[in-house]
Amino acid sequence: MGQPQGAIGVFDSGYGGLTVLKSLMEQMPNYDFIYLGDNARTPYGNRSFEVVYEYTLQAVEKLFDMGCHLVILACNTASAKALRTIQQKDLPRIDVTRRVLGVIRPSVEAVSQYTSTGHVGVVGTVGTVMSDSYPLEIKKLYPHMTVVQEACPMWVPLVENGEAHSPGADYFVQRHLMQLMQRDEQIDTLILGCTHYPLLIDKIRQYLPSKVTVLSQGDIVAASLVDYLHRHPDMDAKCLKQGQVQFFTTESTQKFSLAAALFLNQSVEVRHVGL
C-alpha cells in the first residue's frame, strides 16, 4: 500500500507567503493546501543561516507530519538559507520520496523572458541579499547578466503593521529604489525578492522608471509548480485535490486572521500549532 494523499504544504516565516498561496489557489483551485506561518519567530530576514535552517526544518517536518508529500518554501530567506541543506542532507534521512521546493529558482528562470538590457535588480531582506542567492543563481543560468541588489529592512515591518499605504512606506520605498537605480541605470527588470513586497507594488511602480518591469513571485512560483507536477505525475498523484485550504500559525490566531484577510481579501479560519 502506498502512502495516503496529502495537501501541498506552503511555509513562510510570516504572512508574505500568503501572496504565493493566493496565486497557487488561483492557478490550482482543485488542489488542497496547508499554509504554516511561523509568526511567533518572524522575521527570519536578519537571523543567521543556522537559525533559519533550524526553524525551517522544524516547519518542514511539521508539514510532513500533517501528511504533505510536497512543501513549498514561500519565503525567500528560508529558500536562500535552508533549502539546499534540507534537500541534500535531510530529505534522504527523512523520506527520499518527499520534496521541498523554493521560490528563488523559479523567479530566476523567469528573468530572461523580461530583460532586454541584461541588467536585473533585486530587492529583498538583509538575509536574502547577504546570501547572494539571486546573483549566484542568475549567473549559473545567464552568465552575461548584471545583477544589483538592495536590502530593504523596513519594507516587511511596514507591510505587517498595516502601513503599506502610509507616508513612511513612500519614504522607504522611494529611498531604496533610488539607491538601486543610482548604482545601475540600465536595470530594466526588478525581482521582488520577498513575498511581502507585492503589497507595496503600487508604490514600487510609482518610484521606478516606467521602463522597469516588476516581477512578483506569486504567479511565477504557481506556474512553475503547475509545470513541476506535470513533469512529475508520481508526485501529482500524491496531492489531494478537494480544493480545501487549511491555515496554521505558531502565534495568535486572531492576529493571523486579520493579516490573512489583508493578503487574501477573504476571511480564513486559523488554528494554532507548535514547532
Rank of each mutant, 00 (worst) to 15 (best):
P4G: 12
G6R: 06
F11N: 07
G14I: 09
G16P: 00
T19G: 12
K22Y: 12
N30C: 08
Y31N: 12
R41T: 13
R41D: 07
T42I: 08
Y44P: 12
G45E: 11
S48H: 03
Y55V: 04
T56L: 01
L57Q: 03
Q58I: 07
E61H: 13
D65G: 05
G67T: 10
G67F: 11
H69F: 06
L73A: 02
A74V: 07
C75K: 10
N76W: 15
A78L: 01
S79N: 07
K81I: 01
R84K: 12
I86L: 00
K89V: 01
D90E: 06
P92L: 05
D95P: 15
R98V: 13
V108Q: 04
E109T: 05
E109F: 09
A110Y: 06
A110P: 02
V111C: 09
Q113H: 10
Y114W: 11
T115E: 03
H119W: 02
V120P: 06
G121N: 04
V123R: 01
V123W: 00
V126W: 05
V129A: 11
S133L: 03
Y142V: 03
P143N: 10
P143Q: 11
T146R: 05
A151D: 08
P153C: 05
N161M: 03
N161W: 02
A169D: 02
F172N: 04
Q174D: 05
M181K: 10
L192H: 04
H196P: 11
Y197K: 14
Y197P: 00
Y197T: 01
L200G: 06
L200S: 06
I201H: 11
K203D: 11
R205A: 14
R205D: 12
S210V: 09
S210I: 08
V214R: 05
L215N: 15
L215Y: 15
G218D: 14
V226G: 05
H232P: 13
P233G: 08
D234C: 08
K241C: 09
G243N: 10
G243M: 11
E251A: 15
E251T: 05
Q254C: 07
A259H: 12
A260Y: 14
F263L: 15
V268H: 15
E269N: 12
E269G: 12
H272Q: 15
L275E: 03
